[in-house]
Amino acid sequence: MSQTYDPAAIMNNPDTHSGVTNAKLGVWLFLASEIMLFATLFTSYIVLRMASTSWPWGWDVLNVPLATVNTVVLIGSSMTIVMAYARAYDKDKGGFQKWMAATILLSLAFLVIKGFEYGPKFAAGIGPHTSVFYAIYFTMTGLHAIHIVGGIAVNAGLLYMSTVDGHWKNPLFLGRVEGAGLYWHFVDIVWIFLFPALYLL
């Protein structure tokens, strides 16, 4: 049977198409669900904190300087991924690969610093079981770290794909980079909420 589906014709019809590509719309919807996920954790954090009789201050028990460095690292990676997207937009393969590699390196640095933050805690016998504060701290930062790992996997995948001509020249490639960028910004924003909530307030 013949394949008559013509995406271009459908996309240009504002009556039946949003004008946003499927992939981008999909990423936005995925982020909507992610917002609900983290919002729930933040709500739980607020509820538990309100109900507790004592709640430690982040400065006293957590390594705020390291976390501050991490914040800078993560914001930096958000900038590099934007640069990578801009290079890809200009069909500059070398530039794209350079900036994407920088993004991945920065995110790995984030995880390593996180490891330096977790390490002494575990060494001192402090874990999620210690108190509700540590429970929510490890759960939220841990879940966030898992999101970072996922982002690294996606970004590394894109970096690899850019070396394959068939993918690099695919008109959809740019959309994929954009999707990865949206996701990465989201991970960044979650951290920007996590950092003050857990460390500063």
Binding site: M36, L37, P128, H129, A135, T139, L143
Partner: peptide
């Protein structure tokens, strides 16, 4: 997603002995 988060918290309670 809220149930997913809630399930993660309950999983933490069971596996890592937190007290959410």
């Amino acid at each position: 997603p809220p149930l997913e988060a809630a399930s993660i918290l309950q999983l933490m309670d069971r596996v890592f002995h937190t007290s959410f």
